[in-house]
Simulated assay, not measured.
Amino acid sequence: MQKPKYKRVVLKLSGEALAGDKGYGIEHTTISSIARQIIEIVGKGTQVAIVVGGGNIWRGVAGSQRGMDRATADYMGMLATVINALALQDALENIGMDTRVMSAIEMKEICEPYIRRRAIRHLEKGRVVIFAAGTGNPYFSTDTTAALRSAEIEAEVILMAKKVDGVYDSDPINNPDAIKFNYLDYIEVLNKGLAVMDSTAASLCMDNKIPIIVFNLTEEGNILKAVMGENIGTYVGRQEHAQ
């Protein structure tokens, strides 16, 4: 049996990804498909941690643009990620996967507090760990959470699951002539302002040499392909480590 390229990964899921075609809320078919794909890669021996966004329920930036206090709006967004994390946990456990939700904001009745050593121990025991509530601080995105948690648990790669099949020089939905990048260096992402992740997260990945694979989540089986090292999507990292 072919062994996976990566032994410990952080899968970054946007809240919008959980909404499927609905655009809002949680779509059962979509979240069930994601859960099946996660179990498949765990079965290959890969340790999986997940960072989930909350944009399908609430976006802090959008709230602040309407006059809401930015910190309050961001805290609401963190709570939305907890809702998504619990939904994903339920989907995984319904098909037999042992799962833990760890929140950066303590809410002991429904999930564990985030403790780095405990998170690593869960992963070593074969459990899927879902990181909720972002970093626990306003003004930081869940992209930054993915970069921070990856560094803390020594993940080998961030799997950035999106609704497009990689990184383009412009929006491929609005521009049919948009050019896709197969490989990017961190500096290129920052200098060109490409929509991989925000600059804080990209800088954190660069400083800690954490590669990022941006790929299309809507095509079932792509999470496994990324873990196995197949050349899909866009690879962001150092040139010498490119696929």
Rank of each mutant, 00 (worst) to 15 (best):
Q2Y: 09
K3M: 03
V9F: 08
V9I: 12
V9G: 01
V10I: 15
L11C: 11
L13H: 09
A17D: 05
K22Y: 09
I26T: 15
E27Y: 14
E27R: 07
T29L: 12
I34S: 09
I38T: 10
I38V: 10
I39E: 06
I39T: 12
I41D: 03
V42L: 13
G43W: 03
G43V: 04
K44H: 06
A49F: 02
V52P: 10
V52D: 07
G53W: 00
G53T: 05
G54P: 01
G54K: 00
G55R: 05
I57G: 04
W58V: 11
R59S: 02
R59E: 13
A62I: 10
R66F: 02
R66C: 15
G67K: 10
G67M: 11
R70S: 04
R70Y: 09
T81L: 06
T81G: 04
V82F: 01
I83T: 08
N84D: 11
A85C: 07
L86Y: 10
A87W: 09
A87S: 15
L88G: 14
E93Y: 02
N94K: 15
I95D: 10
M97C: 10
M97L: 15
T99C: 07
R100I: 11
V101E: 03
V101Q: 08
I105L: 13
E106R: 11
K108W: 04
I110A: 12
E112T: 01
E112L: 10
P113R: 14
P113A: 12
R116D: 13
R118D: 01
R118M: 11
I120W: 05
H122V: 14
H122N: 13
H122G: 05
L123R: 05
R127A: 01
R127M: 15
A133R: 02
G134E: 09
G134S: 06
T135A: 01
G136V: 01
P138S: 14
Y139E: 09
F140S: 00
S141T: 13
S141A: 06
T142L: 03
T145R: 13
T145S: 15
L148H: 07
L148S: 07
S150N: 04
I153K: 06
E154R: 15
E156N: 11
V157A: 02
I158W: 01
I158K: 03
M160A: 03
V164E: 08
V164Q: 14
D165V: 14
Y168E: 10
Y168N: 03
D169A: 01
D169Y: 11
I173E: 14
I173L: 13
K180Q: 08
N182W: 00
N182G: 06
N182Y: 08
Y183V: 04
Y186C: 00
I187G: 00
E188S: 12
E188Y: 05
L190T: 10
K192A: 07
D198Q: 00
S199T: 08
S199M: 07
S203E: 04
L204K: 03
L204P: 05
C205R: 04
M206F: 13
D207L: 14
N208G: 09
K209D: 06
I210G: 05
I212S: 03
F215S: 01
F215W: 12
L217W: 05
T218S: 05
E219R: 13
G221V: 12
I223P: 09
I223K: 08
M228T: 01
G229M: 08
E230H: 14
I232L: 02
I232C: 03
G233E: 12
G233V: 00
T234P: 06
Y235V: 07
V236R: 13
R238G: 04
Q239W: 02
E240W: 11
A242P: 00
A242Y: 12
